[in-house]
Design a binder for these strands. Structure first.
Lengths: 186, 186
DNA sequence: CCTCCAATCCTAATTGTTTTAGTTTATTCA
DNA sequence: TGAATAAACTAAAACAATTAGGATTGGAGG
């Protein structure tokens, strides 16, 4: 038995790659093991099972998505910030159609996971605060933006938009609707 | 072997009920069979397998959702129609948190399924047309509304809104943003 | 250098799932 | 009544997750 030299990170990376390569196919430990040239039970030395693997992929994805959003919003404000945030959000989902849905899955009773989730909320909060959104409206506006972006990229990446009409234009329309709510401070 | 008196519809109904009763738990033929007091292979007399069962549940759901939307929009126009549509959409998803996601799954190469999908699009198209949305903008507006609603109800029903702040108020905010794009004809 | 121990990887086995094949029995209808 | 059809069953194959336990590797400390 020559040692394969695995690590939790390597397993997570392969799982993430498989997920993005074919988002429609279920992630299985078998496929990850084959990809790594190892038997399935060996994965348990690095990861506590399929559920844990999915959680780890999700957390890595949240960090990446959060960083992308933070970067996008940096140095921008008002409608510009919202537009940049939206573009970055969509870009991440399109680039990672398998990982993305995991990043938006709730895990009740997992404080570490919940804490990470704030990474994707904060940039949105910053962008909206930079439009003069009242503080008691902020959460609702964040939820609205998040809902719109989440729904759009989910439908896009899963081919839910049936008609072959320019999806970029649809996204522009969506963003402009969202931005409208930003343009006019009270 | 006393006969159980099943039918495709009965199987679909039980599957739908299981799905809604516990949206987090995977739908399996085993559970459906147990619920019906029958062995798993017997289900194949009525349904072509798990995939077919899911498809049938989805189609039944699409019809129900489409009817709810059509009813909501009937006799209304402009912002009123959009508000009613949104409320009905959310009500369906909340009442059927297990079935709803299936109704929004794309099935490439399934014309019957695609045709059914129009049932949920048409009410939205009607609502938006009744605001003076230009015809070449219509698809994009429909997609925007659909994205926003889809994302919201998915996050709501899967407990994706972390903070315990009034979700109804957030939905109101979202609808008002969508309706804004409706209020002002060119 | 050598021993030892912990980590890694394996095989074997259990459980639970989908699905196919073939059999039996109930129902229907000619 | 008797035959055809449909619905249920048993048996079994294929595949996945997981656990248990055993063997080997690789490195840490003497």
């Amino acid at each position: 038995m020559p040692r394969a030299g695995l690590s939790a990170d390597a397993v997570v990376a392969v799982a993430a790659a498989l997920l993005d390569a074919d988002p429609a196919t279920e992630l299985t430990l078998s496929r990850v093991a084959v990809e790594l040239g190892v038997k399935t039970p060996s994965l348990y030395n690095h990861v506590a099972g399929l559920g844990d693997l999915r959680r780890r992929v999700a957390m890595a994805g949240i960090v990446e998505l959060g960083d992308a959003l933070r970067t996008a919003v940096m140095g921008r404000s008002g409608p510009d910030a919202v537009r940049a945030l939206a573009a970055a959000y969509r870009a991440y989902a399109v680039a990672h159609p398998g990982i993305y849905p995991l990043t938006q899955e709730a895990r009740p009773g997992d404080p570490e996971y919940a804490a990470l989730g704030l990474r994707t909320i904060e940039p949105a909060a910053a962008a909206l605060r930079s439009c003069d959104v009242a503080e008691d409206e902020l959460i609702h506006r964040i939820r609205a933006v998040r809902s719109a972006l989440h729904g759009f990229v989910l439908l896009e990446t899963r081919h839910g938009f049936g008609i072959p009409v320019d999806i970029d234009a649809s996204f522009e329309t969506l963003i402009e609707i969202l931005v409208t709510s930003c343009r006019t401070p009270a």
